[in-house]
Each structure stands twice: as structure tokens, then as C-alpha cells.
Amino acid sequence: MALPYSKKLLELFLNPKNVGEIPDADAKATEGSPACGDMVQLFLKVDPKTKRIEDIKFKSYGCASNIATASIVTELAKGKTIEEAKNITWKNAEEELGGLPPTKIHCAVLAVDALHTAIENYEHQHGLLKEKVPTTPETITKRLKHVIDPRKGIDVIRAKTVKEILVRDGVAIIQLDMARGEEFAGHLEQEIKERISPLWDITSVEVKFTNG
């Protein structure tokens, strides 16, 4: 058969490893969105002493490459320390899979991004940051560039869905150009909170809508 996928990729697509959720995860991260047709969610369990990734699980909404790359990234990361896991690149994932069609490289990028974000979230939440840089609206903007507005299919910063960002005494306030009750409002609120609340100095996140 002339499918553009390697044998390994098809194998993992049919029998992905490390599928599921970790209910008491030490950190989690979501990359992509249903609007893009690609989404990966990663859960980490880290040994507090050795900082080794004891368990890692994923869920995926997406094409075969998405499922297979997420699976391979969890296999690559499992058992590694978080410092070691930070060095895993999409290239590693691609090589392990025996290659990816060029149009599917972004799947590997997405899975690796999810791993890196989960580790970053872990560091924020467990006092492991080397430099404790205070969160600014810019830091938040950077993180929000990964949140997709499902109505527009692009991120909430580019889509100008986010009108204003304020940070005051550990409280992040994100004003959206969208009314509460609008389709996807609840979904976006939840996603924004998940993105911002792991930041080490943020104690609460408020998402505001045009109607309060």
C-alpha cells in the first residue's frame, strides 16, 4: 500500500501507548484545539525527589499522525528527568516514527509542545523556576497565543478576542471581546484559566466578558 505513513506510525495509530488521563496528575497541558482539528492533552506524574517522570498519559483528537506522535512522545519522556525531557524535540519524535509526511510535521510539534508546556507548568507549580520573573501582561499574551478561538480558527490574540490583560497582586484579569452566554464562551474561559493559572505567582485568574 502506498500510504504516506511509516509502519511504526500505523502501528502506534492502531495501538497507541500511554493513553488516558491521570486524575491526580502533578501537571497537565493542552495544545491545539478542536477548531484546528488537532489537539493533544498530556498528564504528568513526577517523582518529587528525583524529578523523574514516573507516569505520563495522553489524549488526542486528531489524525493518525497526531495520535502516533503523542504516543511516541510519551514513550520518549517516560522515565526521564524533567531536565532530560526538556531536550526532547519534534525531530526526535519524527525520527522515532521513521519519518512523517511534511504536512504532518506540525503534529509532532504539537505533541512536543504539550510535553514542554506540561513540564513548564510543573516547574511553575512546584517552585522549580531558576529565575522567578514576575508575570506581566506580556507573559500572559505569550501563553494565550496557544489558545484558539473556535469561532475564528486562529488564536485569541490574533483574533483580537482578548481586549485587555491586567495583572495585580497575583490576580490575572483577562477581558474578552465576547459576551458570556455566547457559544464557546465557557469553553474559552476554561481554556484560558488552564493556561494562565499554572504561572508561579498567579493565585487566581478572572476571565471577563463584555456583559460582566
Binding site: 495509530f13 483528537y61 486528531g62 489524525c63
Partner: peptide, 8 residues
């Protein structure tokens, strides 16, 4: 679910 996985 995403269609390409279904098709494959």
C-alpha cells in the same frame, strides 16, 4: 473525532 483517523 477527527475524520482522517476515521478514514484511515
Amino acid at each position: 473525532v477527527e475524520g482522517e483517523s476515521v478514514v484511515l
